[in-house]
Design a protein around this nucleic acid. Structure first.
Lengths: 244, 244
DNA sequence: CGACCAATTGACCTTTCTCAAATTGGGTGG
DNA sequence: CCACCCAATTTGAGAAAGGTCAATTGGTCG
């Protein structure tokens, strides 16, 4: 048996490649090209701001959020392995919306990826098609987030978010099976779900009592994914992006 | 005096050009090129689905929305004059999120605009820069929407949305001054704000009683824009996009 | 052990929802 | 012009969901 630290270290592009393979049916040579990239990566502390240059998340959790004048915070989206941040260098980042790390992270310089796109000029190039799929995934996440916040109860929201996080981590190849590691506090969940901390806690407990999820430490297990998906009206990202 | 129907008909690109001029400081020759476009436009009935080809909204109101299994509806964003719909023909539209007309609309074929972008190949072409700004505006709108739904009270949400609609219509040159025409029912506002119809109605009345807005028929007047903006923590789109 | 942060619990309060019933405001056919 | 209709707005009353405040527990780390 091989211990985790004993394996050859994963490449920072692995989660991205896994996402691409899962969502976009890329030609093999594009996958090879992506794997062939050697990206300069660097560690980022928790609670740091991710700003500036184009980056690819290799590990760790972050978030984009807005903060109101009186301190209320709303998370717009979680930033997970395989995600691109500030990818278009020509586009100024939104003011009053920040991208921050929630845990320690490893982020890589995404410039080589950009070059790949620039060289393969043309809208129909496989790399362009793949990047469009990733943009579509981001759009789908925002649609999920708005619908959760606007039209779902706390119970539904929580189930929906857990399903989404699980699906995203599986798509990125970071997790597999029926559970995942949730490395953030309930306060962070509350700031994503638009709930108070107290109510977030009670909602989790209700899901536990109903036998739908198990949560111990940072480990989440989706005990009854099908029932969760039904009650939360969860539409998998893969399905939103058009795969039947 | 000239009746409305007597004026020379506005070009379908007018709202777009006005937005671009307001938000993106474009070079004069690009503005000329945009004005020079002759777009085939067509009327769309209220409550129709806007699907398929790239379109530019010339007049009327639409919305993107998701509908849950039990009928609950959440509007993701309003679609107003000057907005592009399904602009990237290479990108499949999200399933389970539809774009519909709320009023009668006039929409134009956006293909010539796309051609303009394709011909002027290059990320730094003025047309590309302008389209990026419009994409940034859309992103800012979604940030607003998520924050409203997640962290604001009904009262704040309503004030915030009215300010946003007003700003968008002014940016598109469709309105000016301190008011605008709101051609949708309170049910539609409710579906955007994540509220019930009844509470939407009561919230509007509260704003009226407080002397912050006037609403008669479809006409909305922002009586105290500054106080509204302060209580709703409203950040103008222009400021989010980086203009100081 | 003490400090501290996250999770949890209890009590009470506010916001928002639901249901049901007016009321209003245009249009429309007679 | 008027009676009628339908959709939209408005009102009332009671219930449910979720928030706030304050205290307690549990685990971790120096």
């Amino acid at each position: 048996m091989i211990a985790a630290w004993d394996r050859s270290p994963a490449s920072p592009v692995d989660p991205l490649v896994h996402r691409v393979e899962t969502l976009a049916a890329p030609p093999p040579d594009l996958v090879a090209a992506l794997r062939g990239l050697t990206l300069r990566d660097e560690p980022v502390n928790a609670r740091a701001e991710l700003s500036g240059a184009p980056r690819l998340v290799a590990a760790g959790w972050g978030a984009r959020h807005c903060i109101l004048a009186d301190g209320r915070r709303q998370i717009l989206s979680f930033v997970l392995p395989g995600d691109l941040v500030a990818f278009d260098p020509h586009r100024a980042p939104l003011r009053y919306a920040a991208t921050v790390s929630l845990t320690a992270m490893i982020v890589a310089d995404a410039a080589p990826l950009l070059d790949l796109e620039t060289e393969a000029a043309g809208r129909d190039a496989p790399i362009a098609r793949v990047l469009r799929t990733l943009a579509g995934a981001e759009e789908a996440l925002l649609a999920h987030q708005v619908t959760r916040l606007g039209r779902q109860t706390a119970y539904e929201r929580m189930a929906h978010l857990l399903l989404e996080l699980h699906e995203r981590l599986c798509i990125a190849g970071v997790e597999q099976g029926d559970g995942f590691t949730l490395p953030v506090t309930q306060e962070v969940l509350a700031d994503s779900l638009g709930l108070s901390i107290v109510h977030t806690n009670r909602t989790i407990q209700q899901l536990r009592r109903d036998g739908l999820v198990r949560m111990a430490g940072t480990r989440v297990t989706l005990v009854e994914p099908a029932r969760l998906a039904a009650l939360a009206d969860y539409i998998p990202l893969a399905r939103m992006l058009g795969r039947p």
